[in-house]
């Protein structure tokens, strides 16, 4: 097997909450608590889960964008271990992995022209050396993402949300990355525009062979774009499988509950027959669980679920649940 482009093993990120007054120190927030996955070149890994499940923290930790937290585990990007690199040493590898953010309004500098925004990574990482080369590349990128290059001297506020997200994608591509992390990149867009941007991302992957880590709370969007999908709950991956397998044959009770709660735009299917209803809410991430963190809400809880920690299985369709383990 070839080495994957991105290899993450046992990643943990624990934040220390600020001390409030005196008294006993607050417990660590276990935002990411032992996450492992691979992303192959040119493929898309989707990470889904509800707010606070640690999907965004995972993405940021992978790119070494987290300070002031306790970290554990290893991250290899393109065969090089990057999790222990200093800020300076990491710089050499930043061009390989870029990011597209959720909010197309906040993530573009309002005082820079679009041309300048897209050219900034070229300057930072010294790709396309000369000024005229950079200009040609800028025009190519703008055409690639579907923004007329004539608009390179306009400012971000002159564009709609969808166009701005295209500009953000062009900026990420300017560094010639092998991997782009998209954190809720289409969540703020209207449905009709969202579909355009999803199609653009898939099209770019075909043309350029770039890999994505695609983070979203939207199960439908992730099914469309991802080859493999990881479902997260309380800082862990509870199920990781090829997209079609996961959606057709979800195995973890949490995945099944999540899917049956997600409405489908079809009045015939809306009254789901075997609907798994989940009571209560996601508990606080500052508790250390002896067993499965989902056990308390799980409709299929077994007697040992609270004492024996489930392990993510080793097959292609990975699941972390005692229902599928011999213990």
């Amino acid at each position: 097997m070839t080495t994957p482009l991105l290899q993450v093993r046992d990643l943990k990120v624990h934040f220390k909450p600020p001390q409030r007054g005196f008294g006993k120190p607050a417990a660590f927030i276990r935002a990411v608590d032992g996450v492992s996955f691979d992303v192959s070149a040119g493929q898309t890994l989707g990470l889904v889960g509800e707010s606070g499940c640690g999907k965004s923290t995972t993405a940021r930790a992978v790119l070494n964008l987290i300070d002031n937290a306790y970290r554990e585990g290893t991250v290899h990007l393109d065969g090089i271990r990057i999790d222990q690199l200093t800020e300076g040493a990491m710089r050499a590898h930043r061009a390989k992995a870029q990011m597209v953010f959720q909010d197309p309004f906040a993530s573009l500098n309002p005082r820079m022209t679009v041309g300048k925004i897209i050219r900034e990574p070229m300057r930072n990482f010294g790709v396309h050396g000369s000024d005229s080369d950079q200009r040609l590349e800028l025009i190519r990128l703008m055409e690639l993402v579907g923004i007329n290059p004539r608009y390179m001297n306009r400012y971000p506020h002159e564009f709609s949300g969808g166009q701005r997200q295209r500009i953000g994608i062009a900026r990420a591509l300017a560094a010639n990355p092998k991997l782009i992390v998209c954190d809720e990149a289409v969540s703020a867009l209207d449905v009709s525009i969202q579909a355009q941007v999803i199609n653009l991302l898939m099209d770019l992957q075909q043309k350029l062979g770039v890999a994505y880590v695609f983070i979203s709370h939207d199960l439908a969007v992730v099914r469309h774009i991802a080859h493999r999908v990881g479902v997260m709950y309380l800082g862990r991956i509870v199920e990781l499988a090829d997209s079609d397998d996961l959606y057709r044959e979800a195995r973890h009770p949490y995945t099944r509950a999540l899917l049956s709660a997600a409405p489908v735009p079809d009045p015939d299917q809306s009254v789901s027959q075997n609907r798994v209803r989940l009571e209560g809410e996601v508990p606080s991430p500052d508790i250390e669980y002896a067993g499965c963190p989902f056990a308390d809400r799980c409709p299929e809880q077994l007697p040992h679920c609270k004492s024996i920690p489930p392990q993510l299985s080793d097959e292609v369709h990975q699941v972390s649940c005692l229902l599928y383990e011999e213990y």
């Binding site: 449905v191 009709s192 525009i193 579909a195 355009q196 999803i198 898939m202 939207d218 959606y247 735009p265």
Partner: peptide, 15 residues
């Protein structure tokens, strides 16, 4: 243009 999690067709028909 609305993606569906219960169907896996490849391309969305965007407006």
């Amino acid at each position: 243009s609305a993606p569906r999690w219960d169907q896996g067709e490849d391309e969305l028909q965007a407006i």
